[in-house]
Design a protein around this nucleic acid. Structure first.
Length: 423
RNA sequence: AGAGAGUUGGCAGAGUGGUCGAAUGCGGCGGUCUUGAAAACCGUUGUACCGCGAGGUACCGGGGGUUCGAAUCCCUCACUCUCUGCCA
């Protein structure tokens, strides 16, 4: 969430930023925040001074008891009653105000970076660049959901039977190709200096709050009520939360991690005819890169991470484009996001395969992730990106590389697969 | 899952109702000494909030309670360890 100190000194900037996101009634919401904060401070001052007085009396009582002056102690004790009542009232008022401020802050998204274009929806995203090209497919070209049937490499019906829609089975060369991509993506990230981790795929409430999935996206995660755990929607959550309540030494920066996990998304309300096959799933595999660094470096790091993702896409020979997300399409916690979309030729569609974001201090403030220098602690910047999400890459490879002889596996994956054609 | 024992500052580890935000040791930082280093010695060393400041408040696993006063007593939850059970 946003830092209250930042809002205090940059109220206009915050309001303007929120308006760029089309956040409703930004001016009034920010005013409410500032009012609550003023109230909080005045209550705390008063509360603290009552506590201070009461602490003083308690100490007096202690000393009197020690000296055996029991009666004098009783006299002082009588004085504490009114203070106690006062401190109780003030304490309750303080918690109430703090809670109100906190929950209001939780509803406020991050302020977009200046380079984020204005706009309402994905239609307004800025296309930064186009790369590569897709093959001209014949009229008989099949979309991937037909191809996977033809070669029997993914079984959606079986998934329906065993679990439900959006939980496919990968079979034979389909499963092996998934495994190949996973290993290839992990190896490339490790080469780029990301330290591999294999995190838990369930997380607790604190972690959900730390990276901002809670309370904002409560309904989008699978929730196991028996143990009050959530299935992760992305490895970002457990990996970034490794650093919750951590004060890093400056020398430890940048922190770079990569992890492979399945990701679980309920996708409530976003199901429909336009999301066929692998385009949208409840469970999918993803390799995620996470980076933590000093505020002054974070936008350079964002570029580096985008560069890494682009290198992967180029090595796979896929046509892709880079989008600078507009304010209206930006995720709740992000200050700036670049999406990478690959062209899936047979369905004639761009598929988002990576989303690389800088959260600036928004997550760090919730996580209490800081670094220390000369006795001063400062919030760090967190970033993450997909590198990459597997199913949509698979969809594009299947469609773009289909030939009469079968589906050609990109050269870089052949050593990982052990075969060069799916036929 | 059952029984028992625990959870204290970066780490180790005292502290069982009152000047305890917390002894001591180690580590870290600064200094003295040294050609340099080590050793020794001296000093310093948590986080957040409020306050212009002086200073104040809170935090001893989380939450709640008893009390004028809680690291210390009570309740509750989580986690760790030991034994038993179960299990990839």
């Amino acid at each position: 969430m946003l830092q209250i100190s930042f809002i205090q000194t940059n109220a206009d900037k915050v309001v303007a930023g929120l308006e760029k996101r089309n956040f409703p009634d930004a001016g009034n919401v920010i005013k409410k925040v500032l009012d609550l904060d003023t109230e909080r401070r005045s209550i705390q001052s008063e509360h603290d001074s009552v506590l201070s007085e009461s602490n003083g009396l308690s100490k007096q009582i202690g000393m009197l008891m020690k000296d055996g002056k029991r009666e004098e102690a009783e006299t002082v004790k009588a004085k504490t009653a009114s203070l106690k009542a006062k401190s109780k009232t003030l304490g309750e008022a303080l918690s109430k105000t703090e809670a109100a401020l906190q929950s209001l802050l939780y509803t406020i998204p991050n302020v977009p970076n200046e380079a984020v274009p204005g706009g309402r929806s994905e239609k307004d995203n800025e296309i930064v660049s186009n790369h590569g090209s897709s093959p001209a497919l014949g009229a008989d070209a099949l979309p991937h959901w037909e191809l996977v049937k033809k070669y029997d490499i993914i079984d959606f019906e079986l998934g329906n039977k065993v679990t439900g829609a959006g939980f496919p089975f990968y079979k034979g060369k389909g499963a092996r190709l998934q495994r190949a991509m996973k290993n290839y993506f992990l190896d490339k990230a490790v080469e780029a200096g990301f330290v591999e981790v294999q995190p838990p795929i369930f997380i607790n409430k604190e972690s959900g709050l730390g990276t901002g999935q809670l309370p904002d996206k409560d309904g989008q995660m699978y929730h196991m009520t028996e143990d009050d755990l959530y299935a992760i929607p992305t490895a970002e959550v457990p990996i970034t939360n490794m650093y919750r309540d951590v004060i890093l030494k400056k020398e430890a920066l940048p922190v770079k991690h990569v992890g492979f996990t399945p990701c679980f998304r309920r996708e409530a309300g976003s199901w429909g005819a336009h999301v066929r096959g692998l385009n949208r799933l409840h469970q999918f595999d993803k390799v995620e890169i996470v980076l933590i660094d000093l505020p002054e470096n974070s936008y350079d790091r964002l570029k580096e991470m985008c560069g890494h993702v682009q290198m992967l896409l180029e090595s796979l020979g896929l046509e892709y484009r880079v989008l600078n997300l507009c304010g209206g399409d930006l995720g709740f916690t992000a200050a700036q996001t670049f999406d990478m979309e690959v062209f899936s030729a047979a369905q004639d569609k761009w598929l988002e395969v990576s989303s690389v974001s800088n959260f600036e201090t928004y997550q760090a403030n919730r996580l209490k992730l800081r670094y220390k220098e000369d006795k001063k602690t400062t919030l760090l910047h967190t970033l993450n990106g997909s590198a990459l999400a597997l199913p949509r890459i698979l969809a594009a490879i299947l469609e773009n590389n289909q030939t009469p002889e079968g589906i050609k596996i990109p050269d870089v994956l052949v050593p990982y697969c052990g075969f060069d054609t799916i036929d």
